[in-house]
Write a protein that binds this DNA or RNA. Structure first.
Lengths: 215, 215
DNA sequence: AAAATTAAAAATGTATACATTTTATAACCT
DNA sequence: AGGTTATAAAATGTATACATTTTTAATTTT
């Protein structure tokens, strides 16, 4: 693996953004980051452009980048798009789903069941793996990549769902219902469940964000 | 302007891809491009990652990038996504559209009318400006950026529509109908027109691509 | 004293040089 | 001879050095 160093740096900076170890709404300078992470500015630049594309950073005027504040409108847009696009790819995927994929999806759900006390971001990653596992069956790379990018952007917001105490449980129930509908080739029902699943998550998220912004 | 050089290089390489001055389905090497365009590999790398994000280039195995062949499936996915997302942003935009924006949109349409004999890519750019002009009124940057990215990816395929001789004319008729519906605040009608407009363009494109691939 | 202009400092973009990884070539073994 | 390992060549990633641009601060002007 050649890009191991670069990837580690990427993970490190992303983690530092997530856990508030880097200042929000402040211009981040390549030079600062370069000394902070003890690498030259070249790999820093690479990581910054990648993180900008993924929504973790935004341009800050003409020069430099900053960590954008969480935005209820952004969250709403992301979930709105997912609400429309994910049923679309599910529609293409269901006819091609075989038992191997179903088994894999079930495995992931069981992993989520056993992750109740683990890291919130690991749960988020497992959640994406479940969705991705099903969507990949559609063999629609362009559609898939856009959806993957939306999930990536959503991951900044993960942690707000969990404020709803029983959200993980509700979410898992919907996952199992979805899997059953897929197993039975009930395309319309599966799409409905999925759309409601995303819509619900979006609403919880947005309401928590709005609540937070009032204080 | 600081990034003028970088931007010129970006435009130049993109143009060379578009006009087949660079080999298709072949690994492009940074070193080669570096000597070809007479700059160091650093700005080349920047442009390559940008073009990869925009769909003009794709990873080629573990190392290097290549110009991906046009794909009917990709085109279908892009237009499918646009079909669902653009009516969405239009829905948010219509209530906020004022006469200034309507005037601006009309100006762009008249420019398109006068561009019948001009460059196909200029026509494509004007087409995007018309859509963008309306969508920006929605003030939904996240949704807007995703749609903009889809248009960007679609621009690789522009030129196939024009094989349909009277396509520009049909397309313009739909643009004017859309603008009228927006002016009259007929939200549902406007959304229908827009969806049909995109769907039609997608179908023409895909059918031409499929036709081409049979030979 | 406030605004504007100019000069200095800091930050980014780019070139060159070096390190590491990948790919291609050739030698070797069974 | 075919396949495998070792070696050389080429390509990419990264560090350092330099050029350009932007920002800051200070001086000047009204």
């Amino acid at each position: 693996m050649e890009k191991q160093h670069a990837n580690r740096l990427y993970q490190q900076i992303k983690g530092d953004i997530l856990d508030n170890r880097l200042p929000v709404a402040t211009a981040l300078k390549q030079t600062e980051l370069s000394t902070r992470y003890e690498v030259s500015r070249i790999p820093i630049r690479d990581v910054l452009t990648r993180l900008k594309n993924e929504g973790w950073l935004a341009d800050c005027g003409k020069r430099g980048v900053m960590i954008p504040a969480l935005s209820a409108t952004e969250a709403e847009d992301l979930y709105l798009m997912r609400m429309y696009l994910e049923p679309l790819i599910l529609n293409h995927g269901i006819p091609k789903i075989n038992n191997q994929i179903l088994g894999q999806a079930q495995d992931i759900l069981e992993q989520i069941d056993q992750s109740k006390n683990s890291n919130i971001h690991q749960q988020g990653e497992l959640n994406w793996q479940f969705h991705a596992c099903i969507y990949q069956a559609a063999e629609r790379p362009t559609l898939f990549n856009t959806i993957a990018s939306l999930h990536q952007q959503c991951s900044r917001y993960i942690g707000y769902h969990s404020l709803e105490l029983d959200y993980l449980e509700t979410s898992q129930q919907e996952h199992y219902q979805l899997l059953t509908a897929i197993k039975n080739k009930q395309i319309t029902k599966a799409k409905q469940i999925l759309k409601a699943h995303i819509s619900e998550a979006g609403e919880i998220l947005v309401s928590h964000l709005l609540q937070k912004m009032q204080f």
